[in-house]
């Protein structure tokens, strides 16, 4: 089981950030997430493997700089 924005989701072997986002609605603006506190950006979503019991936070929009 993993925790995504304080909601539980079932975990599976080989799970990536990209595969998680595919299961969630309205994530088109999500270009950065925190995986167990570490920032991961969209170019690495497909290659980043999510371990079981992970906590993930979706950063909604990167608009300011």
């Amino acid at each position: 089981m993993i925790n995504v924005d304080e909601k539980k989701m079932p975990w599976f072997e080989g799970m990536t950030i990209a595969s998680i986002l595919e299961q969630i609605e309205d994530t088109q603006f999500c270009s950065v997430i925190r995986l167990n506190g570490k920032l991961v950006s969209s170019p690495k979503f497909s290659e980043t493997i999510v371990p079981d019991n992970s906590t993930i936070q979706l950063l909604p929009l990167v608009a300011g700089g």
């Binding site: 270009s31 950065v32 920032l39 991961v40 950006s41 969209s42 170019p43 690495k44 990167v62 700089g65």
Partner: peptide
């Protein structure tokens, strides 16, 4: 926090 984000993009 912008360092890793900018680097990755």
């Amino acid at each position: 926090h912008l360092i890793p984000i900018m680097n990755d993009h």
